[in-house]
């Protein structure tokens, strides 16, 4: 009897601690070695003194990639864009079919996602302007619950973005 009570107490005490309280992780606003690696990955410098031209080229690339521009502030070198896309993955669909076949019911799988990008320019010296782009995404599943919230840190994605941007800046410079 006594044991039952104490179990009950511990259970309720832990519930009372969890109830309605969420705390921010300690490293959320901490700079790490990783932060500087990411900065390198996400930044390129361009041989132009015109932030505006670089921003225009950047907005063009975002549009080429299907992003809509949500916000911009030329005086601070800021462009923000986003796009909503399908998030279905073949692996998850296969798993869902398998689970259903084994009688596990309807397993939620990723359905759609919102991808956001912010593109920031800043002058670096007289003839150079730096541009840093960052991507993140939110994924919803078939039950409309958020299943993933993440920063995109894949080097290949950034490389691809800057390849496109370099071309756009080149075309801009040559006014083709």
């Amino acid at each position: 009897m006594r044991q039952l009570f104490s179990t009950c107490l511990i259970l309720l005490a832990s519930i009372s601690l969890v109830a309605c309280v969420q705390t921010i992780p300690k490293e959320a606003l901490q700079l790490t070695k990783e932060s500087f690696k990411l900065r390198q990955l996400q930044t390129r410098s361009f041989d132009t003194s015109s932030e505006k031209k670089l921003l225009i080229a950047g907005a063009g690339v975002l549009q080429d990639l299907g992003y809509n521009i949500d916000e911009s502030e030329t005086k601070l070198g800021v462009i923000v864009g986003s796009k909503n896309r399908d998030a279905t993955e073949a692996g998850q669909v296969a798993a869902m079919i398998l689970v259903a076949a084994l009688g596990g019911g309807n397993m939620p799988i990723d359905k759609h996602q919102k991808i956001r990008a912010s593109l920031i320019t800043h002058p670096a010296g007289k003839k150079t302007t730096k541009l840093r782009v960052t991507f993140q995404r939110i994924v919803w599943n078939t039950q409309n619950q958020v299943s993933k919230t993440q920063s995109i840190e894949d080097p290949q994605i950034y490389q691809e973005f800057f390849d496109k941007l370099s071309k756009a800046v080149f075309l801009e410079a040559n006014e083709i």
């Binding site: 959320a28 932060s35 996400q42 916000e71 601070l76 800021v78 912010s118 960052t134 993140q136 993440q150």
Partner: peptide, 25 residues
């Protein structure tokens, strides 16, 4: 940006900047 945020809005005249960090939260 260094801290992993994506900028949401910025206004030079009002002096405000907002950003969101997604990392499982």
């Amino acid at each position: 940006q260094d801290l992993g945020f994506v900028i949401d809005k910025a206004d030079d005249e009002l002096g405000t900047v907002s950003g969101t960090k997604l990392n499982g939260y």
